[in-house]
Design a protein around this nucleic acid. Structure first.
Lengths: 192, 192
DNA sequence: AAAATTCTGGAACAATTGTTCAAGAATAAC
DNA sequence: GTTATTCTTGAACAATTGTTCCAGAATTTT
């Protein structure tokens, strides 16, 4: 043992996450990351490695946080306790709306961004993204299964597509009215 | 008048389009573009301008081509003549599946890629993307109107979201089986 | 053929890229 | 307090970035 690490590792990767989330992988320079974290290049490299490793770390943390929350939502655990199937789906799609509505945040879903920008070119990132999608799909499938839905799996896949599509529309500048209307009709249709 | 332009302008922007489509805006260097077109930097700059102008040009051409085709499909004109509403929607969503199935092409939809990477940061590109989405939505709305659908507009927005979501899933590595199943259930649900 | 004009390729540019490394600061163990 | 170890900062690095510019090639008009 010797000199202790001065910076908070978790805060650093949160800062890194925000930069990649906002600007994408190629749009982010290592200088952006040192600025955002307030660290020297040496420290960042020593702690996490190169730019790609940093991105993978940030994405992994994002997935672990957001997908876990979604799983709780789908399962009706915690804050989602007592919510109906429809209400849980409503909250899920609401993620895409609230980011715009409440936070004026057009960074979209980091997972979705990674799928578009990097998954086709980087096998490791593809695996991360695929695993995250699988967890979401499984959670949604179980949710639909609660109602004895026979096509639970396909409906789960389709709902994930709707969610991702809404995220894309939000980045493209779709209005809250449009996004809300999509969610509304989606809820009507899914549970006839 | 003096020396004539030696290269084919249309071929050049097609080459440029393919590079941006494959690698994204930030992932593409001007050197990539000169390599792809076979032109010197001077020629490219003289003919089209800087990197951003080149991207906007390539995106505009893509939109004009693809959105026009989609409009014909929705309207049942040309190759789509005689197709039912359901069949036209099937073909539309098929765009996301066939790229993978027939061409093993994971570049996705250039318009969707632009929405994710650039629309939130570049107003001019946002406008292009929004206009394209509007044309698609209008075409779909008219299609649903043929059946006297009262919620044609919202259904159009929702279908666009499904399409974009499928494009994201395809980039993320979703199987053809999954994508096809999504399309199938989407067709069942949309026309009850 | 000469002149005028436009195109072409690539050299040149400063700025930025991702990464490495070394010199010094800070702390734990002795 | 000394030693050993780890951390921190930032200088240094070669490579690449987007862009400009110029010398020469090509073509039309005179």
């Amino acid at each position: 043992m010797a000199r202790l690490r001065e910076f908070d590792e978790a805060k650093a990767i949160t800062a890194v996450q925000n930069v990649f989330w906002e600007k994408g992988y190629e749009g982010t320079s290592y200088a952006d990351l040192t600025t955002a974290t307030g660290l020297g290049k040496g420290s960042l490299y020593a702690a996490f490695g190169n730019k790609r490793a940093l991105y993978i770390k940030a994405l992994s943390v994002y997935i672990e946080q957001e997908v876990s929350l979604a799983e709780l939502l789908f399962a009706g655990i915690g804050p989602a306790n007592g919510l109906s199937t429809s209400e849980r789906v409503q909250h899920f799609l609401g993620l895409a709306i609230e980011a715009i509505e409440k936070r004026d945040d057009r960074r979209g879903c980091f997972l979705c961004n990674a799928s578009v920008e990097l998954a086709p070119h980087d096998g490791e990132i593809e695996d991360l993204v695929t695993a995250a999608h699988d967890r979401l799909t499984k959670g949604l499938t179980a949710l639909f299964d609660e109602n004895g839905d026979e096509k639970s799996r396909v409906k789960a896949d389709r709902l994930l597509a709707v969610y991702l599509g809404m995220r894309v529309l939000a980045k493209a500048g779709s209005s809250i009215a449009t996004l809300s209307a999509i969610r509304e009709i989606e809820l009507e249709h899914s549970f006839l």
